[in-house]
Amino acid sequence: MELLNKNLIKMHTNFQTQEEVFEGIASLAVEQGLASDKKTVVAGLANREKESTTGFFDGFAIPHTKNSAIQKAGIVIMVNESGLEWNSMDGQPAKFFISLLIPENEAGTTHLTLLAAVSRMLVHEDIRAKLLTLENEEKIYEEIKRFLSENM
């Protein structure tokens, strides 16, 4: 799957604030060649967050942005050690961040359809429960790939 790979997943991060999470996501995106400028990505994520929370249930959040600094559509996943206040739908602190990054001029629908499928995936509580138990990046990647291949 071209939108996600093991290198875009990072577990056991130690972010203390929302800002740090965005910085972490943006750094990895730049490192992995998804984005050109860290600052712009952080600002994009923060602006979207300001509109309304991306926090979901059971510690999951789905920060996302469509942004000129992003060169390639992709998914960055961060699993933090501790939960952070995210104003989530169930009020729980967020620790499992699935971040969707979309280039400004994304024309093809394939990527967007795939990202939509990832969003849909999070609605399934069994997948959420499963993802929280996985112990390494490889397994998270495999689990998401499996779900998407069964549900696309």
Partner: peptide, 12 residues
């Protein structure tokens, strides 16, 4: 507004 995540989460 962004049309990336919540639209589809609500659908699902």
């Amino acid at each position: 507004p962004t049309g990336i995540a919540h639209t589809f989460m609500a659908e699902e």
